[in-house]
C-alpha cells in the first residue's frame, strides 16, 4: 500500500503533527514502507479465526477479569493533578488558549 502526499498531510493534521511540505514526499515513502511491511501479515490465512480485540485470548484464561467495586478511592489531589500544568489558573483550573466554537 502506498500513500500519496495528500493522505500524509491529512494524517499529520489528524495527529496534530507538523510536517513541512518539503518533507511530505519522504514521509510518504517511509510510511508506505512501514505499511507494506505490516501487509505481510495478510499472507496468513485467517478465514477460520475469530477477530481478537486485544492481546489476550479470553477463552484461554481461567479467571475472568475482575471489575472494580463502585467505591471512591481517588481524587482530592488538585495540586498533584495540576503540578505539571504549564498554565494553571486561579481556583484550580488548567489554563489553555481560548477555545471558542
Amino acid at each position: 500500500m502506498s500513500l500519496d502526499k495528500a493522505t500524509v498531510r491529512r494524517i499529520a493534521t489528524l495527529a496534530r503533527i507538523e510536517v513541512p511540505d518539503a518533507d511530505l514526499e519522504a514521509t510518504a515513502a517511509q510510511l508506505s514502507g512501514i505499511l507494506s511491511w505490516i501487509e505481510q501479515l495478510s499472507e496468513v490465512d485467517t478465514s477460520n479465526v475469530a477477530p481478537m480485540s486485544g492481546g489476550i485470548d479470553m477463552e484461554s484464561i481461567s479467571t475472568k477479569p475482575r471489575w472494580r467495586e463502585d467505591k471512591v478511592t481517588d481524587g482530592g489531589q488538585t495540586e498533584k493533578v495540576l503540578a505539571n500544568a504549564p498554565d494553571p489558573q486561579d481556583g484550580g483550573f488548567f489554563g489553555v488558549p481560548k477555545v471558542v466554537e
Binding site: R68, D70, K71, V72, T73, D74, G75, G76, Q77, T78, K80, V81, L82, G91, G92, F93, F94
Partner: peptide, 27 residues
C-alpha cells in the same frame, strides 16, 4: 448513577471545586 467513575476511583458528585475529583487516569 454511580459513586465513582467508569475507569477510576475518583468521585462523580456534582458541584465540587474544580479538579478536586480527578485521578491520574482521568487527567
Amino acid at each position: 448513577i454511580s459513586k465513582s467513575k467508569l475507569f477510576s476511583g475518583a468521585p462523580t458528585e456534582f458541584g465540587a471545586g474544580p479538579n478536586t475529583q480527578v485521578s491520574f487516569i482521568d487527567a
